[in-house]
Each structure stands twice: as structure tokens, then as C-alpha cells.
Amino acid sequence: MDRSVLDRARRGDPEAFRDLARPHERELLVHCYRLLGSLTDAEDVLQETLLAAWRGLDGFEERASVRTWLYRIATNRCLNARRDQARRRPVEPVPPFAPPAPTRHGEITWLQPLPDALLDGMPGPEARYELQESVALAFVVALQRMPARQAATLILRDVLGYPAGEVAAMLGTTETAVKGVLQRARAAVPAERCEPPATAEPVARRFAEAFTRGDVDAVVALLTDDVWLSMPPAPHEYVGRAAVRSFLAVSLAHAAGRLTLVPVGANGQPAFAADLGGPAGVIVLTVRGGGISAIARFHDPSVPARFS
């Protein structure tokens, strides 16, 4: 840390504060995304974090690095945001066709994809996870289902590699409590990991070709038996080949001849920006064991703009 920059920031120089914070903004945004599952919410909380840090700079005691201090502020702002459920419930879209009855209704309707471009040049996790694994949709969904402090503990320890003592200080708890919470959080994380992009890409390419020509049978042939399809912010989820087939038969018939898919990168997984004569969301695929085990179709038409 450049001492002169810190001193100038404390004297009220906003440019000096930006120099302090800028190297950490991208990773803080991804940190907030992991905790909140929504890039929109993560961007809001990042701005709250930077404002709180600017206003509280006199209270920075330099017992830890600027990076750790910012992570502490961001983590606690995310915990506050997770308590405010109202801000995390988007309006459910109305489908332009009559879908079949869903297998179940999902609760994590605020989920959004993370553009891979935001990961470029970012330092990787320092503990149990690779960068791709630490932003994979299944991992992010698991974090949303955990109690907020469990999720924060898991990220700080197993993704960012902070020692238990520093995590305890960030969360205002004890090392013993951190160890207990971490054990429960680890048990809630899916053990099976996504295939790397290079391995998943051929399957994704065949999916896109079949999907755009409306070939339901060819799409279903690429799916695992336990595949699930979700459509945030709609709560409908379809589980198993038969259920997914029934949905695709209706949705692809509605899109016949009008749908195009453009490859993009999201959450370290194969993804496509959909167009139906206008932006129609983003589709993210989870590939495991040579087949597609999950399809997340994000219906918010504003999402594709993040990938342009």
C-alpha cells in the first residue's frame, strides 16, 4: 500500500481514494455476486461499499490490508442486503405461450448470470476452488440456499483463503464458531463439478444447432436423465428429461424460425445470448459427464446487454 496515497485519501482527495479502491473493485463485485446471486444487486452493494469506505476512511486502523478492510465492508453490506428480501424479488414475467405445469417452483428467482469478461485478469481463488468452480451457477445457487453467514464464511475461507481468525474478525464472531459454520456450509455444496469449457464446448455447440432449428429430439438426446431447466426470474422449474421435453416442445414451437443464439461466456460455463427479433435473455448450460445436466434460461431481456 502506498502510504502517501492513503494519507491523501484521508485528507479528502477522492482521486487518491479511487487509486486505493480501484485495484479491488472487480474482485469485490464478484464477491458480492457470489453472496447475492444477482449482478444487479452486486453492483448496487459494491457502490454502497465504496461509499461506506470513503466515509469511514478515518476509522481504517491499518491492522489489515486495504483489500481485507474492503472485503469486510462488502461482506457485511451483502449480509444486510440478504436480510432485505423485498429488494431481491423481481417481477415474474408472463410467458407468451401456455407452458406445461412445472415440476416445482424455484425460490431463487433473483439469480442472474455473470459475464466471463468480468473475470478477465482477476486474481483467482486462493483456497479450495478454481475460478470457474467458484462462480459456477450450481455453486452460486447453493450459496443462496445457505444461511447468509454460512455462505459468507464459505466464501471467505474456501474461495478467498482468509484464515479463520481474520474471517472471525470480519464477521464479528469467534474462530470456533467459524469452524462450525464452515463445516455445515461445506456439506451443502454440490460435490460434482462442471466440466471445463474446452470439454463442454462441443456439447454446447450441438445444443445450439438443435435448439435454433427447433429439433426437440436432438436437444433431449444431449440431456442427462436428471436434467433440470430453470427460467429466472420466473419460478418454474422442469426436472427430468420428460418434463424438459414437454416444455421445449411448446417453447421451441413458439420460437420456430425466429430464434438465434450467439455464443457468450457466463459463470465459466457455455452460454448463449438469445434473440427473437430482439433480445430474449441468456441461456447458460451446465455440462457434466458429457451431457447437459442443467439449462438456466434467464428471461430478463436486459441481461444480454451485459454480454455485448
Rank of each mutant, 00 (worst) to 15 (best):
Q150I: 08
A138S: 12
A164T: 13
A117C: 04
A138P: 10
A142M: 09
L154V: 12
V141F: 06
E126K: 14
A136L: 08
M170W: 09
A138D: 04
Y162P: 02
Q112F: 09
Y129Q: 03
R128K: 13
A177T: 15
Q144C: 12
R128I: 00
A138L: 06
A117E: 06
L182T: 02
R145C: 14
G124S: 08
L171V: 14
I155L: 14
E126H: 11
V140D: 00
A127C: 10
P113Q: 01
P113D: 00
T176Y: 09
L114Y: 00
A169D: 10
V141E: 09
A169K: 14
G124N: 04
M122F: 01
E126C: 08
Q132R: 14
K179N: 06
G180C: 02
L160K: 10
L131M: 14
A148H: 01
Q132H: 11
L131Y: 03
E166L: 15
G121P: 11
I155E: 03
R145V: 13
V140W: 01
A151Q: 01
R157S: 13
V159K: 07
T173Q: 08
L154N: 06
A117Q: 07
A177S: 15
E133H: 07
L137A: 10
V141S: 07
A152L: 12
K179W: 05
L160H: 11
A127N: 13
L143K: 02
T176A: 15
L143I: 11
D116H: 02
E126T: 14
M170L: 15
V135Q: 00
A164K: 07
E175D: 14
E126S: 14
L137D: 00
V140Q: 01
P123M: 11
L160Q: 10
A177I: 15
E133T: 06
L119P: 02
G180I: 03
L182M: 09
E130L: 13
R149C: 10
T176C: 05
A169V: 13
P115S: 01
A148S: 15
A169W: 13
P113R: 02
L119K: 12
V159L: 06
L118F: 05
R145H: 12
A148M: 07
T174V: 15
D116S: 03
Q150F: 08
T176H: 12
A152G: 12
P115D: 00
Q144R: 09
V141Q: 10
A152W: 03
Y162N: 08
L131F: 12
M170R: 10
G161D: 04
L156I: 10
L137E: 00
A151M: 06
R157C: 15
P123T: 14
D120F: 12
V159D: 06
E133M: 04
D158C: 13
D158K: 09
D120V: 15
L154P: 03
S134K: 05
Y162S: 03
P147F: 08
Q150E: 13
G172R: 08
A148L: 09
L182G: 00
P125T: 10
V181C: 03
A136Y: 02
M122W: 03
L154E: 07
